[in-house]
Design a protein around this nucleic acid. Structure first.
Length: 608
RNA sequence: GCCCCCGUAGCUCAGUGGAUAGAGCAAUUGUUUCCUAAACAAUAGGUCGCAGGUUCGAUCCCUGCCGGGGGUACCA
């Protein structure tokens, strides 16, 4: 699947006018041509051309000679010689070096890098081409239970889903975002019980969202610890309210309709604060509820499902792996609802892929769900569980989601923003103390910096982690100014922008009429090359649905820029052409930094 | 019991069938008459959990074991 997608992308790019901007692809194309007469299927060997891990081996390397030794019956170094002899270097590559057992080390011609940079400068997309094979994706992420405050457990799904949406759209795909709200569950029984027994009418009239949150927490508190719930009389009463809701009780359904907008408003407020793109759809469980009897009927009819114990209906995958689609009390389950959702999405959105950004603990559920869907006749659509690890406390233990311990998402966000503001003020004081001239920013500007830094820190810490591993939620680490953090990227951007302010240059002029680029120092060359690798990074991020590929690229770019900034004076460059060339490097760096951060849902600020 | 994930530097984590396994923090040290020091640079730090196997080549793929986490028909 992934290879097929890569292949389609590659073919699409070849057809594109500015396809030569993708360095890796250009080099691979040349290897494809060189290998054509040596081996019947060059594909796998072309894939062995990749960026070097160590810059002392050049910019790119080809490892195919060793792999070909057996099939061709020759020594790897000889094969490397053959390949190199057939390789059209053009104005792209320096003469390759053959090293070690048969590595082909490739170095790009610096003039080519400089030319390519000048070419992409006017391009809004910074040299990244739109895919020639756009797909329609449905992405299902965040999906909280409404009527409960969002907590830390919702963080990853929300921001990973948001980042993937931005990335896929930027690459030219159609993305339909759908928030599969848990809006029909037992939490409404709690709310209904609370409404009927604990409501402060006046408070409800004035601030319904807050009052509903209060009674929710109050009822949870009265129920007490989870383990007592089965025999707890209040919990029992709540369950009864839920059952009445589900069985069509008029009063409870009226109240449900009354609560919903308030519950949604509360969730949307957090999304807005976090900077999450607005959803295209928010079809929750209640939306699919009327479809469920028909789904079960269809499952039975097509023999996907079968009767289980005591009137339950099940789908059997193997001896000890079974999914329930109707409970013995007649109620449906999330499997039923998820199958109804797939059916609905196929019918209404016609996607080529449906992605579920949901934590790893549900991987068996999704494996079963996808298998059930296939048996049910769903074909020709990628169904992927974009799984992720847990957010752990600083001590490495899962953060408890029990109420009242400060794990509500909104509190975490506010805390990070507060710390961001502190950081700004410390830095301001330090710089003053060092005798620097520091502008006095308005409270509003400081606030904007604090939000960009604080919220950026949370998001970046999450997205820079390999999706599948757990990570520790640690303010000190995520707000650090050194290392791979949002702050470091934002700082690189702000320093960069400062150059243009000081120089009094409108960056736009560099884009409409890009100056000649000269890359004399290793710092300039490294920065330029890194800028040209933007598309490579995005394609590798999308291939694995892995936002951390973008952050890894950002980290390299920002570090390379910092080295350049330290060593290559821009405003005081030795000559006017060099100054222009460096300004262009800066402008492109700022734009790529900003674009990358934007794809992650992170804001930049002009100064900090 | 069965299934899934993880184990890499003191700490937090990257990483890939390829060359001497990388970052950041912490430690030691240097750099500011400043295009923002929220920075740059240098030194030191490793049995990639253990044992086999496949391979020209394994931290990566396969098998077993040890350790940790998660899931396992009526919550999603």
């Amino acid at each position: 699947m992934r290879n097929a997608e890569r292949h389609r992308l590659a073919c699409g790019r070849r057809a594109n006018i500015i396809s030569h901007m993708n360095l890796l692809n250009s080099i691979q194309d040349r290897f494809r041509a060189a290998l054509k007469d040596l081996v019947p299927d060059a594909g796998p060997y072309v894939a062995m051309v990749k960026p070097t891990q160590d810059t002392k081996h050049g910019d790119y390397q080809a490892n195919c000679a060793m792999a070909l030794a057996k099939t061709l019956g020759k020594k790897p170094r000889e094969i490397a010689q053959d390949i190199v002899a057939r390789l059209d270097l053009g104005d792209l590559l320096e003469a390759p070096e053959i090293a070690g057992p048969g590595f082909i080390n490739l170095r790009l011609q610096t003039a080519h890098i400089a030319g390519a940079l000048q070419t992409i400068s006017p391009d809004d997309r910074l040299g990244v081409t739109k895919t020639m094979t756009p797909r329609t994706y449905v992405i299902d992420y965040s999906s909280p239970n409404v009527a409960k405050p969002l907590h830390v457990g919702h963080l990853r799904s929300t921001i990973i889903g948001d980042a993937l949406t931005r990335l896929l759209r930027f690459l030219g795909h159609t993305v339909i975002t759908d928030n599969h709200l848990g809006d029909w569950g037992t939490q409404f029984g709690i709310l209904l019980y609370g409404y009927k027994n604990l409501l402060d009418q006046e408070a409800y009239a004035k601030e319904p969202v807050r009052e509903l949150a209060r009674i929710y927490i109050e009822v949870r508190r009265l129920i007490g610890a989870d383990e007592d719930e089965a025999k707890n009389p209040i919990a029992e009463a709540c369950r009864a309210e839920t059952a009445k809701l589900h069985h069509g009780d008029v009063e409870n359904n009226r109240l449900w309709k009354e609560f919903m907008p308030h519950c949604l408003a509360e969730i949307h407020e957090v999304y807005e604060k976090l900077g999450i793109l607005p959803y295209d759809h928010e079809h929750g469980e209640s939306f699919y509820n009327p479809l469920l009897p028909g789904v079960v009927e269809s499952l039975l009819e097509s023999k996907v499902a079968e009767p289980g114990d005591a009137g339950a209906i099940i789908i059997r995958f193997n001896e000890n792996n079974v999914a329930l689609v109707r409970k013995r009390d007649g109620a449906f389950t999330y499997t039923t609802s998820d199958l109804a959702t797939i059916q609905y999405r196929l019918e209404h959105f016609h996607p080529q892929a449906i992605l579920y950004v949901v934590d790893f603990r549900q991987s068996q559920h999704f494996a079963n769900l996808f298998e059930a869907a296939r048996r049910w006749g769903v074909t020709g659509v990628e169904l992927s569980h974009i799984s992720f690890g847990s957010v752990l406390g600083k001590e490495g233990k899962p953060i408890s989601t029990r109420k009242g311990d400060g794990t509500e998402l909104i509190d975490l966000i506010n805390q990070a923003v507060e710390l961001g503001l502190q950081k700004y003020r410390e830095s301001y004081d330090d710089r003053k103390a060092q005798g620097h001239e520091v502008p006095d920013l308005t409270d509003a500007d400081q606030r904007a910096i604090a939000e960009a830094v604080g919220i950026g820190a949370i998001k970046y810490a999450d997205l820079s982690q390999n999706r599948t591993s757990d990570y520790k939620f640690d303010y000190d680490k995520m707000l650090a100014t050194e290392g791979n953090t949002a702050t470091y990227m934002q700082y690189a951007y702000a320093r960069n922008r400062s150059i243009f302010r000081k120089a009094g240059i409108d960056a736009e002029t560099l884009r409409t009429d890009p100056p000649t680029v000269t890359l004399e120092t290793p710092h300039e060359r490294a920065l330029a090359l890194q800028l040209l690798r933007f598309e490579e990074a995005l394609l590798s991020a999308v291939a694995e649905y892995q936002p951390s590929a973008i952050t890894a690229y950002l980290w390299d770019l920002a570090k390379t820029f910092s080295g350049f900034f330290q060593n290559c004076p821009v405003i005081r460059a030795e000559s006017e052409p060099l100054r222009k060339s460096r300004l262009l490097l800066c402008d492109l760096t700022a734009r790529v930094l900003q674009r990358c951060l934007d794809l992650l849902g992170i804001k930049t600020v002009e100064r900090m």
